[in-house]
Design a protein around this nucleic acid. Structure first.
Length: 864
DNA sequence: GAGTTTGAAACT
DNA sequence: CAGTTTCAAACTC
């Protein structure tokens, strides 16, 4: 029996929301008829239930977020394009000299002559100085560049846009800042948009002329040379405000958004193209929105500072991306959705999936591998655009078993430290301390953030010392900021290492510049200090290749998607920036042979629920069910030595292993099935309890029930919360749970704060606690998909999860988990982005579940 | 540090 | 797909 109250509530709400229509609606009349309570009394009843009233409030912010996110989603795309465009410029200059000239620009030109034409008319200013303004301008510049360089992006949209675009550099006249004006002219942005941007830039510029200059100088330096400018970096670092953590928070969001947008870009390339300028404009607006949104006292962010600092950091931290850059670029961390209460953004970078890359390539063919070689630059520009994009990005696990997967996953052994430390200055103690911080999931957000940061440290390290450079991507580039991010978060612990890092940065960079060849050659001088674990200080593996030239998967560096570093003792190494083309080619060959060659080797078993992974305290680093994707073939080591990849990764053997006499301490092959069954039972129990809980909650709020019913009626029988396995096995991801925001492999991307999904506006009266539990239980194991779908459907029929993973769920890093367990990230951060890129969704290889939350987002679930 | 063992990657 | 070779890390001494 429906209690009268729910009905009345519903009626009241309906009337409140849409008084006139509601009363007229048959539903209203029907409810009114059913309800013993007279409509007249409805109002009082509603007042008596604040919970019902509150929903709108809860909803409000999501809507804002959503709005912002949507805009941002477009923006990031532009930014990405901008990146590419910028890179293109850079690359064009370089590649032309090299004779490798087929750059993205050409492709772009082919794609959109009209735009190109416009750009040609425009004054092209190669000079990309003015980082300060750049954040604003660059974004414009990038957009314009992308427009000009990459017609595909902006062109299509638009004849309309083209018409609006001034053929003359008039916009420059409107710009106060020289850089801004340059950019504006270069970009040929419509006057309105350009004006707005320029004005903003000007304002910002006024705010901090000194920093701007500094930034500019840095930027120029970084731009001119591929390598970071140690000097500049050094200068900059000290200037960082103690509270820049706040900056990072926001920047993190922005970054996340950017990344996410990048993802979206893949899917919605056409859309992006349609509204380049608008997007750019929106971006600015988004920033403003974000700022305003985050204007909360605890999140006062100084955009200028953040921009400058971030730009500085990024300038100093330059990373080169090879073929993965595009893919990763597309791989987007979650966006606003990742925002947690504290504003800390946890972004995990999905693993680089070759398939994704391919998709990306197809979508945005304009991005040549060469063009994408300068993620750092891209990142910088992007970050500038976003006012310092510091993202706590877990290491890209896409790298595979090697560096990232193993080192990070092995919680017990995870020794992640600042790589620069190895070079000398950082004391072992500090290193360990850092590692510990990173390795242990913390209970508090700060710790979590640190952990996350550390996770990415290995990536970062490359930047710092200029040695290990990831092929990868913005994501990795973003990761490079981890340490920086971490510093603000925990000055006492991480600041020191960072300082060291910076100092080393200079050193390393100088070294790199001076004698780039030094470090790949196995010079006796550079006797590698081979740590017992085979990792250098930062958790990066280094190789000792002699015959493979570091162009085969034998090479850990190569396999991990990074360039060999000075710490490597390889001989005849071609896995270097100088040979990036070669590296790309080889990688492509390998991928053509085995698309999964560079995918993470360690994946979360589908049935592993978040609860299992995290454990009660969230301290578990390696999910018990984590397994080597391909399995091992050990015969003599009995899986008890590091010859065994499973053992090396601290994961148990599975049925996929072909090992003989398995005695893997992390899990015997024979026991794997048993464990699965056990877990399955446990999971079922949990689900039941959750369902019961949910029912209780639902009963409490009659509105919810009614709402759900209505929705169910409106929706097809198919569970809206569905996981579609395009792959053979449904991937389940533990990161699907809200707790796992930042699964690099999966997920963070998955969790974007879904904008307020329109469909959702109901059910927000459910307390978060319940939601949190639910989310924890929402695993996407194939086995449980149906039940989950059912459950989800109960709440929101609109929720649709597309689980497209081939069972490749890369393990989220322990740090990620830790950060997730912080609790602050929770339910809100769990988002199912409706805008998730198709590329991921379509990619069979993509190791992550993809959620197409068209109808419902995490927030909705949370609200439930 | 040299040599051996091991198993993944590459090749056939 | 299976067998073989190559390779580099892990391991031993």
């Amino acid at each position: 029996m429906d209690s009268p109250e729910p009905s009345s509530k519903t009626a009241t709400i309906n009337s409140t929301i849409n008084p006139t229509p509601t009363e007229d609606s048959p539903v209203f009349s029907y409810i009114s008829n059913l309800s013993p309570i007279q409509p007249v009394k409805a109002a009082p009843v509603v007042q008596g239930f604040p919970g019902l009233n509150s929903p709108p409030l809860l909803f409000t912010s999501p809507r804002v977020s959503a709005h912002s996110r949507l805009r941002r989603s477009q923006f990031p795309q532009l930014s990405s394009e901008a990146f590419s465009g910028k890179n293109d410029d850079y690359n064009n200059a370089i590649t032309d000299s090299d004779g490798n000239g087929v750059s993205a620009s050409q492709l772009r030109s082919e794609l959109s002559p009209s735009i190109q034409k416009v750009s040609d008319n425009n004054i092209s200013v190669p000079d990309e100085s003015g980082s300060l303004i750049r954040c604003v301008d660059e974004f414009l510049v990038d957009v314009s560049n992308s427009e000009s360089a990459n017609p595909s992006n902006s062109t299509n949209p638009s004849p309309k846009v083209a018409d609006n675009i001034p053929q003359s550099p008039n916009s420059a006249a409107e710009s106060v800042a020289d850089f801004a004006s340059k950019d504006a002219r270069k970009d040929e942005i419509p006057k309105d948009a350009a004006r707005v941007v320029v004005e903003q830039a000007e304002e910002e510029n006024k705010g901090k002329s000194s920093s701007d200059q500094k930034d500019n100088g840095i930027y120029n330096t970084s731009t001119d040379s591929d390598l970071p400018s140690p000097d500049l970096c050094t200068k900059i670092e000290p200037d960082l405000p103690a509270d820049n953590s706040l900056h990072y928070h926001y920047s993190g969001r922005q970054m996340a958004q950017l990344s996410r947008a990048d993802h979206a870009m893949l899917d919605d390339a056409s859309d992006i193209q349609n509204e380049p300028l608008e997007t750019a404009h929106d971006c600015r607006n988004d920033n403003d929105k974000i700022n305003s949104m985050s204007s909360a006292p605890d999140e006062c962010i100084m955009q200028h500072d953040s921009q400058t600092k971030a730009g500085q950091h990024q300038s100093g931290i330059r990373r080169r991306c090879l073929q993965f850059e595009d893919a990763q670029r597309k791989i987007s961390p979650t966006s606003l959705g990742l925002q947690n209460a504290s504003g800390v953004v946890s972004c995990s970078i999905p693993p680089v999936s070759p398939a994704v890359i391919e998709v990306v390539a197809s979508v945005s063919s304009n991005r040549s591998s060469t063009a994408s070689n300068r993620p750092s630059t891209q990142l910088t520009s992007s970050s500038d655009n976003f006012e310092s994009l510091a993202v706590k990005v877990p290491k890209p696990s896409g790298i595979g078993l090697h560096l990232n997967s193993i080192a990070m996953q092995a919680g017990s052994r995870a020794t992640v430290s600042v790589k620069s430390a190895e070079r000398g200055n950082l004391s072992l103690h500090e290193k360990k301390l850092t590692s510990m911080m990173s390795c242990h999931p913390s209970e508090n957000l700060k710790s979590c953030s640190i952990s996350s940061n550390v996770v990415g440290s290995h990536l970062t390290s490359g930047n710092y010392d200029g040695e290990h450079e990831s092929y990868g991507t913005n994501a990795q580039s973003a990761a490079s900021l981890h340490l920086n991010d971490a510093k603000p978060l925990n000055n006492t612990v991480l600041l020191k290492p960072t300082e060291h890092t910076i100092s080393h940065k200079r050193k390393a960079s100088a070294e790199y510049i001076d004698s780039p060849m030094d470090y790949n050659q196995s010079s006796p001088k550079k006797k590698r200090k081979k740590p017992s674990d085979g990792y250098d200080g930062d958790g990066c593996k280094r190789c000792n290749c002699k015959k493979s030239k570091c162009l085969k998967l034998y090479c850990d560096c190569f396999a991990a998607g990074i360039y060999c570093a000075g710490s490597c003792a390889c001989q005849g190494c071609f896995n270097r920036l100088e040979y990036e083309d070669t590296v790309n080619d080889v990688r492509q060959q390998i991928q053509s042979r085995n698309p999964l060659a560079f995918c993470p080797k360690i994946v979360q078993h589908p049935t592993d629920s978040p609860a299992n992974i995290l454990g009660a305290e969230g301290a578990s680093f390696t999910p018990p069910s984590a397994r080597h994707k391909r399995g091992c073939s050990c015969k003599k080591s009995m899986c008890l030595k590091k010859y065994c990849e499973c053992y090396q990764a601290n994961v148990g053997c599975s049925s996929g292993c072909r090992c003989e006499g398995c005695k893997n301490v992390y899990g015997l092959k024979e026991e794997y099935g048993k464990d699965l069954v056990k877990k399955h039972c446990i999971t079922e129990r949990l689900e039941k309890s959750v369902e019961e809980k949910v029912e209780m909650v639902t009963a409490t709020s009659g509105l919810l029930q009614i709402d759900q019913r209505n929705q169910c009626n409106l929706t097809p029988p198919t569970p809206s919360f569905q996981c579609s396995n395009h792959g053979k096995n449904a991937s389940k991801s533990w990161f699907t749970s809200g707790r796992y925001l930042s699964s690099p492999e999966s997920g963070q991307a998955i969790y974007g704060l879904s904008p307020a999904s329109p469909t959702n506006s109901k059910n927000h009266d459910i307390d978060q606690e319940t939601t949190g539990d639910i989310m924890d239980l929402v695993t996407f194991d194939q086995e449980f998909n149906y039940s989950n779908a059912k459950l989800a459907n109960e709440f929101s029929p609109g929720f649709h999860v597309t689980g497209n993973t081939d069972d490749l769920l890369a393990l989220p890093k322990s740090q990620d988990l830790a950060s997730n367990t912080g609790g602050q990230l929770i339910p809100q951060t769990v988002h199912f982005q409706s805008t998730w890129p198709l590329s991921w969704r379509d990619s069979p290889i993509t190791p992550m579940n993809q959620f197409d939350g068209s109808g419902m987002n995490a927030l909705e679930l949370t609200k439930l």
